[in-house]
């Protein structure tokens, strides 16, 4: 074989593998749509907007699950992001060299724990603890829409907490890598202008901001699809509520719980369509974060074409 044709074979081979990934995503989308056709035909777009989930009456709407998934994931993000960033900054910037490897190992160990184990820990440790917090909350606060309802322990707060523990290792290890890739020249540039350590770290965080947003979004993606642990602690009640104490339901949880019970075709199709909705939302979140990262890099990366035209004209 000549050099040239070997090169060509290599290119075609790797290209084909890359294409397979795209095809798989596409095929999943097609198959989900095909399987959920009965439900799509019956409910149309109202599936996305209806609050009723009644398998007996054959009425299906995914809104409570969409709400539950997004609410629990956003809450998890709010809790986990500051902690994960703190861990990343500590490990990459402040921690003594001897502690670094053990800490990295420990945070990554969190990611290795199986989801079902998190669920068990959630039921036996987290839920009673959350219940204790909920019952000890003063009545004046209980009036707020955020804290209404009976203090069951099982509910949105437990789900958000368990999700944030599960998301932390992802966000923190990606942010750590991103921070490590910030050129030393950036920090030195800040130090040379009289920056304190804190200000130099802030400059490094600013330099790494798109990567850090990517890390947060990766965590968000994980939280959206997380099934087992959430199912075990969220309470599994398809009712929309802003209360952190209320038992709610997520898309992944309803599929896992009800898939085996779905006797008739419409019920099954509605569950598959819930999966399709989850798939679409995940794709949208990922595309949006890509778009965000892209627009941020673009606004600061060489604006040569845009800037050169007027500036070049003025110089000439």
């Amino acid at each position: 074989m000549t050099e040239r044709s070997r090169d060509l074979t290599f290119r075609i081979g790797t290209g084909a593998v890359a294409l397979v990934v795209v095809l798989i995503v596409f095929a999943i989308g097609v198959e989900l749509t095909r399987q959920s056709l009965p439900s799509i035909q019956k409910f149309g777009f109202s599936f996305w907007r209806t609050e009723i989930w009644d398998p007996v009456a054959g009425e299906f709407g995914a809104l409570p699950f969409i709400w539950g998934t997004l609410y629990s994931s956003v809450l998890a993000l709010l809790i986990s992001t500051p902690i994960a960033l703190g861990i990343a900054v500590f490990i990459s910037e402040l921690c003594p060299a001897v502690l670094r490897q053990p800490l990295v190992f420990l945070t990554e160990l969190l990611a290795a724990i199986p989801s079902i184990v998190y669920g068990l820990w959630g039921i036996f440790v987290l839920v009673p603890a959350v219940r204790a917090i909920e019952t000890s909350m003063p009545d004046s606060l209980r009036q707020l829409p955020l804290f209404t309802g009976p203090p069951l322990g099982l509910g949105m707060l437990s789900a958000a907490l368990i999700l944030s523990v599960m998301v932390i290792p992802f966000t923190s290890s990606v942010s750590r890598e991103v921070l490590r890739s910030v050129p030393i020249a950036q920090r030195e540039g800040a130090y040379a202008l009289g920056a304190t350590r804190f200000e130099a770290i802030r400059a490094a965080l600013y330099y790494a901001r798109t990567g850090i947003i990517g890390a947060i979004m990766l965590g968000f993606g994980r939280a959206l699809g997380e099934t087992m642990a959430v199912t075990m602690v969220i309470g599994n009640n398809p009712r929309i509520s802003t209360s952190l104490f209320a038992p709610q339901y997520t898309m992944a949880a309803v599929i896992a719980n009800e898939f085996t019970e779905a006797a008739d075709q419409l019920y099954l199709a509605a569950l598959v369509e819930t999966g399709l909705v989850l798939f679409v939302i995940t794709l949208m979140v990922n595309s949006l974060s890509r778009l965000l990262i892209w627009s941020m890099t673009r606004s600061l990366a060489p604006l040569q074409e845009a800037a050169a035209a007027p500036a070049g004209g003025a110089a000439a």
Binding site: A185, Y206, L300
Partner: peptide
């Protein structure tokens, strides 16, 4: 370091 300024080998502007 505020009184003693420094310019580096490779220019290192902040991404601002």
């Amino acid at each position: 370091r505020r009184r003693v300024g420094m310019v580096f080998q490779k220019s290192n502007p902040f991404p601002k």
